[in-house]
């Protein structure tokens, strides 16, 4: 479904990605692992069109994604939930969700998806009239994911959904990510520091190190890998 081939990307003179190639299959959860500054977020930014690659190709259903604008990429069903959530903190929960469906015209479908989001995240229904900024960290992450679901995505790009959350809340959110993937058939490219949790719900994963893919394997393969165990799992 999504394929990056030899993508090199840079911020000005600083090269952040060197010839990165990876693939996300239909209905799969794929983990993108690595230390801080390895290029995980940059990879997502390239896919969602926020950053133009310097060279290489991003293919999605035969389309050359790297030539398209961010709003066009959203309309193709790729939705990026950025690091730090980036909610509209002074708008209500409901307004945030409505904005998720900004490009859609099917009122009935939007209403159905709103109900669905409220089923996944009942707390959001309760807080629908509150400002997003007044939510707790976990609720904000739920809103960020819910807002992305309102676009009716085929591929979710999730950047550090566990950032700053208590372990229990993190587990809850990962269960919901798994449910979304299985019930809605939405593919997920997951950037996550919590490698153990990430591999639990992923089919396969890539390890980035200073802008290069150094390892690509199935989730079991990565869990068994000596290097991954020592660097990321800590045993």
């Amino acid at each position: 479904m999504l394929r990056l081939r030899d993508v090199t990307a840079a911020y000005g003179p600083v090269v952040a990605l060197h010839q990165v190639s990876l693939e996300v299959e239909e209905k799969a959860v794929v983990a993108l692992l690595g230390a801080n500054g390895a290029g995980k977020t940059t990879t997502l930014r390239v896919i969602s069109g926020l950053l133009r690659p310097r060279s290489g190709v991003v293919e999605y259903d035969g389309l050359q994604l790297h030539t398209l604008s961010p709003d066009r990429i959203v309309s193709l069903g790729i939705v990026h939930v950025p690091e730090g959530r980036q909610l509209f903190t002074q708008l209500t929960v409901l307004e945030n969700l409505e904005l998720g469906a900004y490009l859609r015209r099917d009122r009935a479908g939007i209403r159905r998806d709103l109900e669905k989001v409220f089923q996944y995240f009942p707390i959001l229904a309760e807080r629908r009239r509150q400002h997003a900024g007044s939510l707790s960290g976990g609720e904000q992450q739920m809103l960020a994911i819910g807002r992305a679901l309102m676009a009716r995505p085929r591929l979710l790009l999730l950047d550090e959904p566990s950032l700053g959350l208590a372990p229990m809340i993190t587990r809850e959110i990962f269960q919901i990510i798994r449910a979304i993937n299985q019930e809605e058939g939405i593919s997920v490219l997951l950037v996550e520091q919590n490698v153990r949790l990430a591999l639990d719900i992923s089919k396969k994963g890539y390890v980035l190190e200073t802008g290069r893919i150094v390892l690509a394997d199935t989730a079991e393969g990565l869990r068994a890998n000596e290097e991954v165990r020592r660097s990321y799992l800590g045993y």
Binding site: P70, Y102, R147
Partner: peptide, 8 residues
């Protein structure tokens, strides 16, 4: 930034 990610 978020607006852009919504497709605005």
């Amino acid at each position: 930034l978020a607006a852009q990610l919504m497709g605005i």
